[in-house]
């Protein structure tokens, strides 16, 4: 659920605020190629005719790791210090028939991650800006087994 003072890490990446957020990709009107993030031209057929395309919210974990150290800044824009840093999960999620998306994972325990497991899009806090706004970004979370 979106709260006041939450702003997305970048415009046009995911629908927000939204109780069921979707990643915003693009689809080529000529050949159907899907990309993420949105691209004005198609990398498959070079047509300059693409449309916004909301990606599936669920997919499967394609491969993964845990980022075990604080990445260099720049380019890393996270708020952690070496003292506060905690390893986080990173992986690719395959959205069937669409595209693979590299994303943060909400889970970082190697015992709880496995290729092929069901994953679902979530929006999570990333940092706080100088005005006190909470910057949010997209991530994938394991879908609880029922």
């Amino acid at each position: 659920m979106a709260r006041p003072n939450q702003i997305p890490i970048a415009e046009g990446l995911f629908t927000w605020p939204d109780d069921n957020p979707r990643l915003i990709g693009s689809r080529c009107r000529a050949c159907g190629e899907v990309t993420f993030p949105h691209q004005p031209s198609c990398p498959a057929c070079c047509a300059e005719d693409t449309e916004d395309y909301l990606l599936a919210r669920k997919g499967t974990l394609w491969t993964w790791t845990t980022q075990g150290f604080l990445p260099k800044s720049p380019p890393y824009a996270g708020p952690e210090t070496p003292e506060t840093f905690r390893p986080y999960g990173v992986g690719y999620v395959e959205l069937p028939g669409e595209v693979r998306v590299e994303a943060r994972l909400t889970e970082s325990d190697p015992e709880k991650l496995g290729i092929g497991m069901a994953m679902e899009l979530v929006v999570v806090p990333f940092a706080t800006d100088s005005q006190g706004n909470e910057i949010v970004t997209f991530a994938f979370a394991p879908v609880p087994k029922t």
Partner: peptide
């Protein structure tokens, strides 16, 4: 740079191992 998920060179090649 802002939306990249914070992967690194070790992180990218670690995914090859997985």
């Amino acid at each position: 740079d802002l939306w990249l998920p914070g992967s690194t060179a070790p992180g990218s090649f670690a995914q090859l191992a997985s």
